[in-house]
Write a protein that binds this DNA or RNA. Sequence first.
RNA 1: GGAGGGAUAGCGAAGUGGUCAAACGCAGCGGACUGUAAAUCCGUUCCUUCGGGUUCGUAGGUUCAAAUCCUACUCCCUCCA
Length: 421
Amino acid sequence: MSILEELHWRGAVNQQTDEDGLKELIAEKEIALYCGVDPTGDSMHIGHLIPFMILKRFQLAGHKPVILIGGATGSIGDPSGRTSERTLQTMEQINQNAEKLKVQMKKLFNAGEGEAIRLVNNHDWLKDLSLIDFLREYGKEFNINTMLAKDVVASRLDSGISFTEFTYQIIQSIDFLHLYQQEDVQLQIGGADQWGNITAGLDLIRKKEGPQAKAFGLTIPLLLKADGTKFGKSAEGGVWLDPEKTSPYEFYQFWLNQDDRDVIKYLKYFTFLSQAEIEALEEKVATEPHKREAQRTLAQEMTRFVHSQAALDEAELISQALFSGNIQELTADQIEQGFQHVPSSTAPREERNLVEFLVDVTKIEPSRRQAREDIKNGAIRIKGTQIKDVDHIVSAADSFDDRFIIVKKGKKKYFLVQLEG
RNA sequence: GGAGGGAUAGCGAAGUGGUCAAACGCAGCGGACUGUAAAUCCGUUCCUUCGGGUUCGUAGGUUCAAAUCCUACUCCCUCCA
């Protein structure tokens, strides 16, 4: 199965330019290709991951991927997928973010065996481009009518778009041209909302390099959940790759809890499992869904890839203890080792009313009213024991060795409270 | 510049002097069922020391009583120029 056939099987192709041409090119040589991300935040979330997983697949198929960090484009603001103007971030902020993303990318794609994926930052070649050069060299190649017709721009014409964001497609086009010329990059991939930017780049390459220039674009479909909502948001917000923002335990739990209807789609999209392995899991979902083997495999693959085998082991240990073991049998040492990455807080080592403990000390509950309601409903468990008494006093007896308190709220939310002082 | 319409809890949207802490839907939270799934059902969602306190764009005013009436201001939409 060729890489393109594989991508189709994985459901990872939305649109592509000159399908046959790209097929031919890939058949005859190893190509270089790229995908970019703008440093608008200090960490990627799982939605960002998709196109880079595809870069990785190309690499495994023998091609040469380039990851672009958009230090320059990030300072302009991509209007794609937005209904309103972005607020500009400071250059310091963007540089800091770019640095963090670089570290994250290296950890994900340059670790372990095999050739490293090349990392570039478009700030390097765009920072010294003068306004006059920009206008004479590139601006002349862009027709305003074409630019206005791009979906991203057209949809913003009513609500307004600044010249800065309007110009974004030119900047991204320069990137593609630059990489085509300097790194022999012939393919750009991106999310479905990048189609306009990618084709703008192709137009620029053709104008500068002649109509015979071989460059292609491929976009990935927007990933939706079975219920029609956007993929990648948990109840608490986005699912981040940074373990400080989303702990490996929470990350593992996110994947483990996926809907039966979605899990195979995600296995295809996110993991490097083979067609045979995924089809076997698909069979399992159909015949013995209660075992949730597909979800477990997905959670394992993703946690191992994004974090590490050690993080996965820990996440599974915690999950095991919390959901199928007897919490009371754990020792304080086991908790210390294994539970550091459950959402946690600290509290002084003193006796306290349960409501105050939940609201004031640990912030597990947002208000006294809510805390009382949950306690009365039997939603609160401490050390595995349901507590329905609003006047309960939290004391050493509720802790593990006077060091940790484990609170469960609802069916599956756990909190670790470390006692100190 | 002129004429209208609008701003209500996280979002959408009722309400046009007391019975309004404010219908209803979505989202959220909790519970039941279950497989840490989906669907469904039930409860609940401003705060509270449970006495009460503070809310309906902002600031004033009328009234025993205002989300509801009046005045000014801010922002948004439609039409005319």
